[in-house]
Design a protein around this nucleic acid. Sequence first.
DNA 1: AGAAAGCCTCGGCCGC
DNA 2: TGCGGCCGAGGCTTTC
Length: 263
Amino acid sequence: MPEILEVESYRLLADRVVGATIARGWADAYLAKKLPSPSAWARTVKNLTITGTGRRGKLLLLETNGPTLAFRFGMTGVLLLDGDAGIEGLFYGPHLFDAKWLRGGLEFRDGRKLIVHDPRRMARVEINPDLDELGPDALTLTRREFNEVVRVDRGDGPAIKARLLDQSRVAGVGNLLGDEMLYRASIDPRTPTGLLSAAEKDRLFRAFRQTMNTLQRRGGSHLGDHMDARFPGGLCPRDGGTMLLATIGGRTTYWCSIHQHSS
DNA sequence: AGAAAGCCTCGGCCGC
DNA sequence: TGCGGCCGAGGCTTTC
């Protein structure tokens, strides 16, 4: 679930600890997998004061008076402050809270705790993350930046769905947001990026912004118009067309056989 | 039982 | 034909 909209809600939650000083931190071996050792997290964060928050795509940043601390949430990670979720419906579907899924976090001198809850163990913490690997942020993508996202230098390029998921091109688009914006733009997700027409690029940019704004207002990446049809045999809510299903860019992709049809 | 919303690695092969 | 880099497949991990 955590795509850019969810991570932005985690950032707003983390804003509440700006000014607080870390008494101690802890991380299990999975959460600390990108660090030299699990103890490196505890050692590094001790006595740091949080000075601000940031975010690039799905990467949450905590600025401090020392190194920048970063969190990525994988597929099932959730950020909690003292056990309270930052947004409604954070524990979606069957994933409820269980103390055994607490993987690490920060405890502040004032007693509050910022905790990562992650059943599937793909969340990670980082110290001084390399932001050069990430493209511009999807929530504030400009037309100029979008033009770079769909630019292809050699050949026809990858399927547009795969390109949208490429975090080095644009940071923050996950599988559900990617499908939703292509659905709204009426574009076949298999279309090679370099073969998109000017009209299709125009529609995709508008749908990109519209998808971010609308789903942020609704409260989550899983609240798109096409979600109800996201199962084998589903019918398009817009025109009743059969929804097609394939793996594109490594992710399960759904699209409408009627209106998402490249001409 | 198979699929899952993210990320990382690796092998193949595309295109110059 | 050689080669760097791109692209897609597969794995991770646990759950329902």
